[in-house]
């Protein structure tokens, strides 16, 4: 702990030395001087790529001396890296299960906070060649259907909505992640797949999204947490606060995420 603080202090001093020659950052009149410096490394779920990049840009306008570095990837892979000791300050996961892996290994500092939710949506090619209207269409064997594999969060969620709807899907492929499903919809190789609402919005006109009532049975929470190994806890905490702030929340909801 003390060593981590000492390291943070050294990094801070080095960076302060580097930026001494650069002009002072423009700050709002009356606001307290910005003392945050250094680098914040954020490991975040792949589905947060666009939103967190936008949030970091806004955060950097408030704190010009803080550099936010991302490692985007599958939540389970990121969790494994953190448990193995990867030097990360903040972890934002796409499921509470993957966050639990990290907190069970006592790698988190304080309790994780749920900051958004994501809901499943049916994705079909723009012309909707299979005339899909709801979950029951997934049982039609003549349609090409793709879902996430049960091992990844979107696959678990898919299994839950089908159980709730009492539909047995006639699946052609269990993809390794949600982007695998989305790509095959975009290429028109499948007639329908289950992806997140945010994926449908990000894909724009390349896919058509269809909402369905059973989606409410599998709303996934996204938790964010400060990590114990962080060498720059003040800046890391400021970043988490920014994600949880109304400005951060707006960027996330604009992309299709829901309130926690």
């Amino acid at each position: 702990m003390r060593r981590a603080l000492a390291a943070a202090a050294v990094v801070g001093m080095l960076l302060a030395g580097c930026s001494a020659q650069s002009p002072a950052p423009a700050s709002t009149v009356g606001a307290p001087a910005d003392t945050l410096r250094g680098t914040v490394t954020v490991a975040a779920a792949a589905s947060l790529t666009e939103t967190f990049t936008a949030i970091a840009a806004a955060f950097s306008r408030d704190h010009p001396n803080v550099r936010v570095v991302f490692n985007f990837g599958g939540s389970s892979g990121l969790a494994a890296q953190i448990v193995q000791g990867a030097p990360v300050d903040v972890f934002a996961a796409a499921s509470s299960g993957t966050m639990k892996t990290v907190s069970d290994a006592s790698r988190t500092d304080g309790n994780p906070t749920d900051f958004v939710t994501n809901t499943l949506e049916i994705a079909v090619p723009p012309t909707n060649p299979g005339a899909v209207t709801g979950l029951t269409d997934f049982a039609r064997p003549q349609l090409a259907i793709a879902l996430c594999a049960a091992a990844v969060p979107c696959g678990t969620a898919a299994a839950r909505v089908f159980a709730a709807a009492g539909v047995v899907p006639s699946v052609d492929s269990y993809e390794q992640d949600v982007k695998g499903v989305l790509t095959k919809v975009e290429l028109g190789e499948i007639d329908a797949g289950l992806v997140y609402k945010t994926d449908v919005i990000a894909a724009g006109s390349r896919v058509k999204g269809i909402e369905f009532p059973e989606a409410s049975t599998a709303v996934g929470s996204y938790p964010i947490a400060l990590l114990r190994a962080s060498a720059n806890k003040d800046a890391a905490r400021a970043f988490i606060d920014f994600v949880l702030s109304p400005r951060g929340f707006k960027i996330l909801t604009d992309a299709g995420f829901g309130a926690p």
């Binding site: 793709a146 049960a150 091992a151 492929s173």
Partner: peptide, 21 residues
């Protein structure tokens, strides 16, 4: 794609198991 017994080969099964808990 990946469907057990039809297209899910050993490397794909390995990768999916790695993603699981």
């Amino acid at each position: 794609g990946s469907f057990p017994g039809v297209t899910q080969t050993l490397p794909i099964a390995t990768y999916l198991q790695l993603q699981s808990t």
